[in-house]
Design a binder for these strands. Structure first.
Lengths: 252, 252
DNA sequence: ACAATATAAATTGTATACAAAAAAGTACAT
DNA sequence: ATGTACTTTTTTGTATACAATTTATATTGT
């Protein structure tokens, strides 16, 4: 066992955090596939820590929506249904529009410069044709806009929503055999923000997501191969019907 | 309190969940004040469980934004600054607008009926003048709209944002010595949804939040009395500058 | 007095033990 | 073969022990 040997590894962070990061990455990259079970002892052995930090990491991931916990049964990598993906995108559509609007109002001149560069970089990446690079450039471009909002809560939520779909990013990129439309949208969005035209920027952002939705959903329907079947469980008196969380709203 | 929780069936739930609910309620109602420390052993004794479920509950609350964890130092009830409140409201503004739009498209006729009744009930509550009842009726009204969207992710996020401000709901309600404007807005929103006029509904929802922002912020500035001062901690090499979470966006 | 430093106390982080529940496996009857 | 009761194995839920770290307190030197 590792004991308290800091092992020189990543940092002085609590184990819980490093475990959290590792699992998270594996889920996002698809190394851990949807439906795959996350068993505490197994993971503890594999990562050479005790069950405690594993448990805590899994619970963090659950609240993030990347993991589903079935009480007294265990955790599994969250299945994402078409409906759920659609829900996520519906929210993203609205929030990406908000990001763009806010960016129009709040982007500094250096923000705008970086946006121009990122836009350029994306175009160059598409010419080279490397999927990883293209996806990276796309993320970088949008990230500048997101950060320009200066609204940390918004940034957090947008990131979270993006994470839910991270697994599909390559399909999405690979889908567009010609990136002409994508480039056009990026340019238009960039210009709108530079000009401070919130109305326009908002509209483009929405369109942008709509296009994404189309291609991601198409791919989801085609390749269902990677997902594992969800485990069924014996009926139990305690099992609440339906919702995965209290979802107890306390609206103001 | 309002809260759509099925109380009492906690018997079969894991302790972690019941602890989570208890702490959550205490934070939202203000029984645990912002800045107050959450110490594991202390809470464990008080609630008569071991530290383990306490820890897990606290971590859930952290991801929800109701608790702040300082590594190796402990957890405290989240302080909410004016900037953060503003950020929350900025997102809510956008999402409440989205809720209203979606409600226009998706509300069933029974939804609409219930909305009318809830609107009516709110008016009656204002006449009676009981703050608790008014706040409850307000929540109920908005909850119908939220649920009508049929978008579970959206519902979850909106609830979470609402929770962040739950502590201020009474100030907000009490502030409006005459509820005329509030009633007018509710009625207008209700009518827009019944008519399916998404554009109009969206606009009203935004105004509604703007009004809230105004009065909540005013009250926040006045009564800073209840908040405890945050503990300061020794500088540490591990302490990351700024952000409380990796926040590593993986945008698509 | 005041600051710096050493010492003690409190508190969190992690590992581990054990009980409770669920899942998987097995034998048996039909 | 199929279904059913029973047993075993696996896995989670909770409690607890101990190490590591931080916070509080006392002590000392100036």
């Amino acid at each position: 066992m590792a004991m308290y040997t800091n092992e020189d590894n990543d940092q002085f962070l609590p184990l819980r955090e490093t475990v959290y990061k590792k699992l998270r990455k594996q889920i996002l990259t698809g190394e851990l596939k949807p439906g795959e079970r996350l068993m505490e002892i197994h993971l503890a052995n594999k990562l050479d820590v005790s069950r405690t930090p594993i448990r805590e990491a899994i619970r963090e991931l659950e609240l993030e929506g990347l993991v589903t916990i079935i009480p007294r049964s265990g955790a599994q990598v969250a299945q994402i249904s078409e409906k759920e993906l659609r829900d996520v995108l519906e929210v993203r559509r609205s929030l990406d529009a908000l990001c763009s609007e806010l960016a129009c109002r709040r982007a500094t001149s250096t923000d705008k410069d970086r946006l121009k560069k990122a836009c350029q970089a994306f175009e160059e990446a598409t010419e080279k044709g490397n999927s990883v690079a293209i996806a990276g450039a796309d993320v970088a471009f949008h990230e500048i806009i997101t950060q320009a909002t200066e609204n940390h809560r918004l940034i957090e939520i947008v990131h979270n929503l993006a994470d839910q779909m991270y697994r599909y990013r390559f399909e999405y990129i690979r889908d567009d055999t010609n990136y002409g439309q994508l480039i056009k949208e990026h340019r238009a969005l960039m210009n709108a923000i530079v000009d401070g035209d919130a109305e326009k920027a908002s509209g483009i952002a929405k369109q942008h997501i709509d296009r994404q939705e189309e291609s991601v959903l198409r791919h989801l329907r085609e390749g269902e191969s990677t997902q594992q079947k969800p485990r069924k469980r014996r009926p139990s008196a305690a099992a609440a019907p339906g919702s995965r969380k209290p979802d107890q709203g306390a609206g103001i």
